[in-house]
Simulated assay, not measured.
Amino acid sequence: MAQVPTIPPAGAADRPRWSVVIPAYNCADFLARALPEVLDQLGDRDDAEIVVVDDASNDHPERVVDALGEGRVRLVRGERNLGAIATFNRCVTEAKGDLVHLLHGDDEVLPGFYRAMEEAMEDPAAVAAVCRAQDIDAGGTTLYTTRSYREGTGVWADALPTFAVSNRVRTPGIVVRRRAYEEVGGYRLDLPHAADWEMWTRLAAHGPIVFVDEVLARYRRHDGSHTSELVRTGANVRERVEAIGTVCAHVPAERRAATVRRALAYSVYFAGSTALRRARAGDWSAAGHQAREAARCGALIPRAVELTG
């Protein structure tokens, strides 16, 4: 098994309540849309830090920080491009706060996000809080809103089996206690397109996840994103299948094979639905790749035990 990166302790001295850490790579225009709302909610708080971690962009995110940061935003500049997952680990390491929010540079939060998530994390036993989110396009138009997984805010009782089957978390909609990152480790570098899914499942196996039944974050889908590139080739589904065994290893052994079968079945549905959407949009190449991956996932279901390791 690949080694899980270690997250060093942040130390207790002058520890802020919040760390909003924004990984950014060639998304300066979107970063300019995200920063004002973060500052509006946390800019006046002495117990919050806001950090932009630039992965060696060439579109000058420092200009956005200088223009909009109000002296409250710290920029950490990468000398070379590390890639998304290594940058996430760098973000968590940079964070000093009790509550860590990794807000990708092309995503956004809605008014009330930090208040609601802080209230959800009042119980120190909670390792993370997840809210509902909107999927938006490049221009900010809402495409989809994630559903409620429980009525009202409270502990997500079946978070672990739910996460193990599919990634139900939009990355701007989760806040993680830094202590939990220190205890479970960082994002796995051997899962370049599924590291977040594995992380959420690992956290759910570690302690309580609180579900916040409010729409408070916005996840941007656009053609320039890494995810869109993966969809065009079917690599998103292939990586998902490769990760299923690792993700489901966090489920109790007696439920592992059944969970793998459910995860594969969901992969068939996911890839098939994506194929239909891409076909309706006239993207026949992507539709074909997704349809082929759906068929491949279906063929793997009888072999689910082999994927449990």
Results as ranks from 00 to 15, higher is better:
residue 168 R to G: 08
residue 172 P to D: 03
residue 163 F to L: 14
residue 176 V to Q: 11
residue 187 Y to M: 09
residue 191 L to F: 12
residue 192 P to N: 08
residue 183 E to D: 13
residue 174 I to Y: 05
residue 168 R to N: 14
residue 178 R to E: 08
residue 141 T to S: 11
residue 148 S to N: 07
residue 174 I to D: 06
residue 156 W to N: 09
residue 175 V to E: 05
residue 162 T to P: 00
residue 190 D to R: 01
residue 171 T to V: 14
residue 145 T to V: 15
residue 187 Y to R: 02
residue 188 R to W: 02
residue 146 T to C: 03
residue 160 L to M: 03
residue 165 V to C: 09
residue 192 P to D: 11
residue 197 W to K: 07
residue 162 T to E: 15
residue 171 T to D: 15
residue 183 E to T: 06
residue 158 D to M: 05
residue 174 I to R: 07
residue 145 T to S: 10
residue 190 D to C: 04
residue 186 G to M: 02
residue 142 T to S: 12
residue 181 Y to K: 01
residue 169 V to R: 07
residue 167 N to I: 01
residue 139 G to Y: 03
residue 193 H to R: 11
residue 143 L to Y: 00
residue 151 E to R: 14
residue 182 E to Y: 08
residue 186 G to A: 04
residue 152 G to Y: 12
residue 181 Y to G: 00
residue 172 P to I: 05
residue 188 R to F: 01
residue 188 R to S: 05
residue 189 L to K: 02
residue 198 E to V: 01
residue 197 W to S: 10
residue 152 G to T: 12
residue 179 R to K: 13
residue 193 H to F: 14
residue 171 T to R: 13
residue 178 R to V: 07
residue 140 G to H: 04
residue 159 A to L: 07
residue 149 Y to W: 15
residue 156 W to E: 10
residue 189 L to Y: 06
residue 151 E to V: 12
residue 182 E to L: 08
residue 155 V to E: 15
residue 156 W to C: 08
residue 194 A to E: 14
residue 173 G to F: 04
residue 167 N to K: 11
residue 195 A to S: 15
residue 157 A to H: 09
residue 198 E to W: 10
residue 141 T to A: 14
residue 139 G to N: 10
residue 199 M to I: 00
residue 170 R to K: 08
residue 151 E to T: 14
residue 151 E to A: 15
residue 182 E to W: 10
residue 194 A to V: 03
residue 168 R to W: 13
residue 165 V to E: 15
residue 160 L to W: 00
residue 152 G to C: 12
residue 155 V to T: 15
residue 176 V to Y: 10
residue 186 G to P: 00
residue 160 L to Q: 02
residue 181 Y to M: 05
residue 163 F to C: 13
residue 156 W to T: 07
residue 151 E to N: 13
residue 195 A to R: 05
residue 153 T to Q: 07
residue 198 E to M: 03
residue 175 V to R: 04
residue 156 W to L: 14
residue 173 G to H: 03
residue 139 G to Q: 12
residue 164 A to N: 01
residue 161 P to V: 08
residue 163 F to G: 02
residue 155 V to I: 15
residue 185 G to S: 05
residue 170 R to Y: 12
residue 170 R to Q: 12
residue 188 R to T: 02
residue 145 T to Q: 10
residue 196 D to H: 10
residue 169 V to I: 13
residue 158 D to E: 15
residue 156 W to D: 10
residue 197 W to D: 11
residue 175 V to T: 14
residue 197 W to I: 02
residue 155 V to F: 06
residue 141 T to N: 10
residue 149 Y to D: 07
residue 190 D to W: 04
residue 185 G to Y: 04
residue 152 G to L: 13
residue 178 R to D: 08
residue 151 E to F: 09
residue 167 N to R: 12
residue 163 F to A: 11
residue 157 A to Q: 13
residue 194 A to D: 14
residue 149 Y to L: 15
residue 192 P to H: 10
residue 187 Y to C: 06
